Computed example of a mutant assay.
Amino acid sequence: MFRRRRREEPEQVAEEAAAPQTRESGPWDAEEAHPEADRVDLGGLRLTVSPDLDVQLAVAGDQPVGVIVLYQESALQLHAFAAPKRSGLWDDVRTKLAAGVKDAGGTTEERQGPFGTELFGQVPGDGGTPQPVRYLGIDGPRWFLRAVISGRAALDETIAARLEEVIGDVVVVRGEEPMAPEEAIVLRLPSEARAAGADDEGPKLNPFKRGPEISELR
Rank of each mutant, 00 (worst) to 15 (best):
Phe115His: 10
Val93Arg: 06
Val67Glu: 02
Gly113Arg: 05
Gly61Asp: 10
Gly125His: 03
Thr48Gln: 15
Val69Arg: 01
Ala98Leu: 07
Gly137Phe: 00
Lys85Cys: 02
Asp103Cys: 05
Gln72Cys: 00
Ala58Phe: 09
Gly105His: 13
Leu89His: 03
Ser50Arg: 15
Gly140Val: 04
Ala99Asp: 12
Glu73Val: 05
Pro130His: 02
Trp90Lys: 05
Ser25Ile: 09
Val69Ile: 10
Ala75Gly: 12
Ala19Lys: 14
Thr117Cys: 12
Ala104Glu: 07
Gly113Ala: 11
Thr107His: 11
Glu32Cys: 05
Arg23Thr: 05
Ala33His: 06
Leu70Cys: 12
Gln131Ala: 09
Leu76Thr: 00
Gly44Ile: 03
Pro35Asn: 04
Gly116Leu: 11
Phe120Trp: 12
Pro35Glu: 01
Val49Asp: 07
Glu73His: 12
Thr129Pro: 04
Val40Met: 10
Glu31Ile: 06
Thr48Lys: 15
Gln112Asn: 14
Thr117Ile: 14
Ser25Tyr: 14
Lys102Ala: 13
Trp143Asn: 02
Thr95Pro: 08
Gly113Phe: 07
Ala60Lys: 15
Gly44Lys: 04
His79Ile: 04
Arg39Ile: 02
Gly116Pro: 04
Leu136Ile: 10
Pro114Asn: 15
Gly137Cys: 03
Tyr135Ala: 05
Thr22Cys: 01
Arg39Gln: 08
Ala30Leu: 09
Gln131His: 08
Asp29Ile: 11
Ala75Lys: 07
Arg23Val: 03
Ser74His: 03
Phe144Ser: 01
Glu24Gly: 13
Pro84Ile: 08
Gln112Met: 12
Gln77Trp: 06
Gln56Asp: 11
Gly140Gln: 05
Leu42Val: 08
Thr107Val: 13
Ala75Trp: 04
Phe120Tyr: 11
Pro35His: 03
Gln56Arg: 15
Lys96Ile: 04
His79Pro: 00
Leu136Pro: 01
Pro141Glu: 06
Ala80Arg: 02
Ala99Lys: 14
Gly100Pro: 10
Ala80Lys: 06
Pro124Gln: 04
Thr48Ala: 14
Gln63Pro: 08
Thr108Leu: 11
Ala80Gln: 06
Pro141Thr: 06
Leu42Asp: 02
Val55Glu: 00
Ala104Trp: 07
Asp126Gly: 05
Tyr71His: 11
His79Glu: 07
Ala104Tyr: 03
Ala60Asp: 15
Ala99Met: 12
Asp92Met: 13
Thr117Gly: 12
Ser87Asp: 15
Leu47Glu: 01
Tyr71Trp: 11
Pro51Tyr: 13
Glu36Lys: 14
Val133Phe: 04
Ala33Cys: 00
Pro141Trp: 01
Leu89Ile: 06
Phe115Gly: 01
Glu31Leu: 14
Tyr71Pro: 00
Ala18Gly: 08
Thr22Tyr: 01
Pro27Arg: 07
Glu32Ile: 08
Ala60Arg: 15
Pro114Tyr: 15
Leu42Ala: 03
Ala19Thr: 14
Ala82Ser: 13
Gly121Gln: 03
Leu53Lys: 11
Gly116Val: 07
Ala17Val: 06
Ser50Phe: 08
Leu47Asn: 02
Glu110Met: 15
Pro35Gln: 02
Pro27Thr: 04
Thr107Asn: 11
Glu16Phe: 15
Glu16Asp: 15
Gly128His: 09
Leu70His: 11
Gln112Thr: 12
Leu76Trp: 04
Gly66Cys: 01
Glu118Gly: 09
